[in-house]
């Protein structure tokens, strides 16, 4: 259990700047998810917290102690890697016991803690097997087990679920969340999957090209994105963006307006704020996605409506309408205004 503070962290690989100054304050026991598109620097940030990557400038503090120069083994952290990184020549049991053995934990305690973790993760039948004799989901559990037996101050996860199938991913997501809150260990979790981020996070950090665009509770980030990037990245289907000039009575200072698909309603042709033509529809059962092309524009515009509402046909001329406060206004530079 620990607090973590990142203070203006920067990272360059040679001449390429990858992280441009990130500040995050993580409270004891908090579950923080770092989310962002591929290549934005999530893993790099996590690896700096782990001590696997040097910090170019700025400070990392764990429990108030600066750890920039501290080796990974002295940080009291545990990490779950995307490819699990299990020790291929050791059994499941030995994999989990490895860290404890190195810490010279008494034998009896090692056995007890490994048994406890194995029970928690339903790994008991596999303790004697080698990693290559396990399925992907079981390997993932072993990697989790290896992290939890050590009772570290901090858990670090680097896309631990991305190699699993959709169903297992949902199941493991719940298990990770449940485990973390039961153990109360501060966790830092990296993913590019926004659903994972929304469901796991106490607070999430949305990263964009080496910057933390927004830090906040998932629903707060969703309903009140601070940048155009965040508005576009969080939420599926993605937010619709329009030039403010094309929209009647848009806020004066805005360059672009974002409106979430679920905040838009279809109106009969001739009414509403803007008119357009239906291109195609996707009926998903509980909800329907209607894709439009607005008159005078070329981009598509997506509406998400209740599955019970009548379905327009492709080619229909329709109008769209929304409430005033559904409009998220962004400046030329992409900041919220």
């Amino acid at each position: 259990m620990a607090t973590i503070k990142l203070d203006n962290i920067k990272k360059s690989f040679g001449k390429t700047d990858v992280i441009h100054g990130v500040d995050i304050d993580i409270e004891d026991g908090e579950f923080i998810v770092i989310v962002g598109p591929s290549g934005c620097g999530k893993s790099t940030l996590l690896r700096m917290v782990a001590g696997l990557e040097t910090v170019t400038s700025g400070e990392i503090l764990i429990d108030g102690v600066q750890v920039n120069g501290v080796e990974p083994m002295d940080r009291d952290i545990a990490m779950v890697f995307q490819n699990y990184a299990l020790y291929p020549h050791m059994s499941v049991e030995e994999n989990m016991a490895y860290g404890l053995k190195i810490a010279k934990t008494p034998k009896a305690e090692i056995t007890e803690r490994v048994a406890e973790a194995a029970r928690m993760l339903q790994l008991e039948p596999y303790l004697k097997r080698k990693p290559r004799e396990l399925s992907g989901g079981q390997r993932q559990r072993v990697a989790m087990g290896r992290a939890i037996v050590r009772k570290p101050k901090v858990f670090l996860f680097d896309e631990p679920l991305s190699n699993l199938d959709a169903k297992l991913r949902v199941q493991m997501r719940l298990e990770i969340k449940e485990l973390q809150s039961r153990l109360g260990i501060t966790a830092l979790y990296v993913t590019h999957d926004q659903v994972e981020a929304m469901t796991l996070a106490d607070r999430m950090v949305v990263m964009n090209a080496g910057e933390a665009d927004q830090i906040g509770a998932p629903l707060e980030v969703y309903s009140n994105p601070q940048t155009e990037f965040v508005a576009g990245f969080i939420g599926s289907p993605a937010t619709n963006f329009l030039d403010a000039s094309t929209i009647p009575n848009a806020p004066a200072s805005a360059a672009r307006i974002g409106i979430r698909p679920e905040h838009i309603t279809l109106a009969p042709a001739g009414q509403g704020r803007l008119s357009g033509e239906v291109i195609f529809t996707e009926a998903l059962g509980a909800e329907t996605l209607v894709h439009l092309r607005l008159s005078g524009g070329t981009e598509t515009f997506t509406i998400r409506q209740d599955g019970a509402l009548p379905l327009p046909a492709p080619g229909d001329a329709v109008a769209v309408d929304w409430e005033d406060d559904a409009m998220m206004a962004f400046s030329e530079g992409g900041r919220r205004v």
């Binding site: 545990a78 490895y98 860290g99 290896r146």
Partner: peptide, 13 residues
């Protein structure tokens, strides 16, 4: 694999 070595480093080795 590099990550195996890194995992061991994090495990305290």
């Amino acid at each position: 694999p590099k990550s195996v070595i890194e995992a061991a480093a994090i495990d305290g080795a």
